[in-house]
C-alpha cells in the first residue's frame, strides 16, 4: 500500500530590503562595509539595523568599518543540502574591527581535506580580511569570502 505522494513548490519571491539594508547593500557595491550605531549604548551593528534591540531607540550615526576582523566562532560543513554550496566549506562569525555584532561569512583559501587540521587554520582568534567580488550587485556575496591575513 502506498502511503505517500509527492508535492512540489516552485515559488520566487522579492524581498524588500528597505532603507537600512538598502544602504548597506549599496555600500558593498562600492567595497564599503557600512555599519550604524546606537546613540545610547554606542554599540555598532553590522549588518546595520534601524533600531537598537537593547535600548529601543533609532540608530543614527553611520560609519564605515574596516574589512578586517577576527573569527569568534566557525564551522566547516562536510555535508551539503539541496540548493546549498558544495561542501566542504567554512563559515564563521567574524567580529569586524569596531563592530559589536558578528558578521557571518565564508572563509576561503583553507585546506579542508583533513577534519583534524581545520581548527588550527580558522580557530577563534584568526584574523581575516574580506575578498571582494569583481562584479558587485548589492548583495552579501559582493564579498565572495574572507581570507586569512
Amino acid at each position: 500500500m502506498t502511503t505517500t505522494q509527492r508535492v512540489h513548490w516552485d515559488l520566487t519571491y522579492d524581498v524588500h530590503l528597505g532603507a537600512t539594508w538598502g544602504r548597506f547593500m549599496a555600500g558593498l557595491t562600492e567595497q564599503q562595509i557600512l555599519a550604524n550605531s546606537c546613540p545610547e549604548c554606542s554599540r555598532t551593528f553590522v549588518p546595520p539595523q534601524a533600531y537598537c534591540e537593547s535600548c529601543f531607540v533609532r540608530t543614527d550615526e553611520w560609519i564605515e568599518l574596516p574589512a578586517e576582523g577576527v573569527v569568534e566562532a566557525f564551522t566547516v560543513a562536510w555535508q551539503g543540502f539541496r540548493g546549498g554550496p558544495t561542501p566542504p566549506y567554512a563559515i564563521a562569525g567574524i567580529r569586524l574591527d569596531g563592530a559589536s555584532t558578528l558578521l557571518m561569512h565564508y572563509v576561503g583559501g583553507l585546506d579542508l581535506d583533513d577534519p583534524s587540521a581545520v581548527r588550527e587554520q580558522i580557530g577563534p582568534g584568526t584574523r581575516v580580511r574580506a575578498v571582494w567580488a569583481q562584479e558587485r550587485t548589492g548583495q552579501i556575496l559582493d564579498i565572495t569570502h574572507f581570507e586569512k591575513i
Binding site: V15, L17, W21, P47, E72, A73, F74, T75, A77, G80, F81, R82, G83, G84, P85, Y89, I91, G93, M104, H105, Y106, R119, G123, P124, Q139, I140, L141
Partner: peptide, 30 residues
C-alpha cells in the same frame, strides 16, 4: 535541511550555506 534553511535570516545569512546543523556547530567551536 533545505527546508530548515528557509528559516535562516534571508539576504545576509541564508546565502552563506547556513542551514540548521551548522548553527549547532558554532557553539562548540567557541
Amino acid at each position: 535541511q533545505s527546508a530548515i534553511n528557509t528559516n535562516s535570516p534571508m539576504i545576509v545569512e541564508q546565502p552563506l550555506g547556513m542551514g540548521a546543523y551548522h548553527m549547532g556547530a558554532f557553539y562548540p567551536s567557541a
